[in-house]
Nucleic acid binder design. Structure first.
Length: 305
DNA sequence: CATGGTCAAGTGGCA
DNA sequence: TGCCACTTGACCATG
């Protein structure tokens, strides 16, 4: 079975007139945060989590059972404890309700913290801010009553080599132990899209074998970084790391192909799809990373029929 | 050598 | 209403 999901933004709901706009991405620039502080952060977060409930309902109404949560639900969350937000009680209650709703509908909720998360960095400061960000994601999923398993994954890249992959992988695996259970139980790693970084096979040997976390296979990234193994081989290797949890894979197509424009980088994501994902008959949850979000999902449904 | 774009993901804030 | 700046890391292509 192929279960399709989309990431963070519902273009239809976020495109509504401003007064009716439904989004979980309300944030602010640094200057505003310095002026208005956590009181305003609290207001934005409250509006965001209210809208999360609406998005979960919308997804159900459109038979979508897989959704990636925004990492921006709490603006500037690295600068405060979310429990200290003036509206925290309300926020926590609404998140509980949102989680109940998703659980009732059998929807899978996952996260993908941003590219600034570098657990392999030799710089302690970078590792500390990474831990902070990951812990926010763990707390978010706890508040949403999501399982402490990769079912509700927190997916990141190793994402850097520093000219010394064994060193970087060692850092990654060692720093993993510094995370709380809320994060460790959910963490997954994704294959990179750069020649100098990590293939599925390298993650299997360098991370999965060492600390046991599953590998999220990204079809698009595999085209740019592989060890000569076929897509199917890499996919099956990643799938083997998930145990009894349905594996997540990422699927996107090239924007430069879509626009027939060589100036656009090959690894940039397309707006929509023109080729169906090939899951090789495996039972997978496919996260669609096109810019067109739920519109791309509907297109993929057509392509698969 | 410096800049901009990519991953993630567009949005806020002001002219 | 348009458009530019915007927290964070690291890497790579282009000028």
């Amino acid at each position: 079975m192929i279960n399709l999901g989309y990431a963070c933004i519902n273009t239809k709901l976020s495109g509504l007139p401003k007064s009716k706009r439904i989004t979980t991405n309300r944030t602010m620039i640094k200057r505003t945060f310095e002026q208005k502080g956590i009181k305003y952060a609290s207001e934005l977060a409250l509006a965001n989590v209210r809208d999360l409930k609406k998005i979960i309902q919308w997804n159900e109404d459109h038979n979508i059972k897989f959704y990636r949560l925004s990492s921006e639900m709490f603006p500037w969350a690295s600068e405060y404890n979310i429990e200290d937000l003036p509206d925290f009680e309300n926020i926590a209650r609404i998140m509980g309700e949102a989680g109940d709703l998703a659980n009732k509908y059998g929807q899978r909720l996952t996260t993908h913290p941003g590219p600034f998360n570098k657990l392999a960095s030799p710089k302690e400061k970078v590792v500390l801010s990474t831990i902070t960000d990951l812990e926010i994601h763990g707390k978010m999923l706890d508040l949403l009553k999501q399982p402490r398993t990769p079912q509700a994954k927190i997916n990141i890249h190793v994402g850097a080599a520093y000219g010394d992959k064994p060193m970087a992988l060692g850092n990654f695996n060692r720093n993993f132990e510094r995370l709380s259970d809320a994060v460790k139980t959910r963490l997954t790693v994704e294959n990179d899209d750069k020649k100098s970084l990590y293939s599925t096979h390298e993650l299997y040997d360098g991370v999965h074998k060492k600390i046991g976390i599953p590998i999220t296979f990204d079809f698009h990234h595999h085209k740019f970084r592989n060890d000569g193994e076929t897509e199917e081989e890499a996919l099956r290797l990643a799938v083997s790391t998930w145990g009894n949890i349905t594996p997540v894979v990422h699927y996107s197509q090239s924007r430069s192909v879509e626009y027939n424009d060589p100036k656009i980088k090959e690894n940039a994501h397309s707006d929509t799809y023109w080729e169906p994902v090939n899951t090789y008959g495996l039972d997978l949850d496919v996260m669609l990373e096109c810019k067109g979000k739920e519109i791309g999902l509907f297109k993929m449904r057509q392509l698969l029929t």
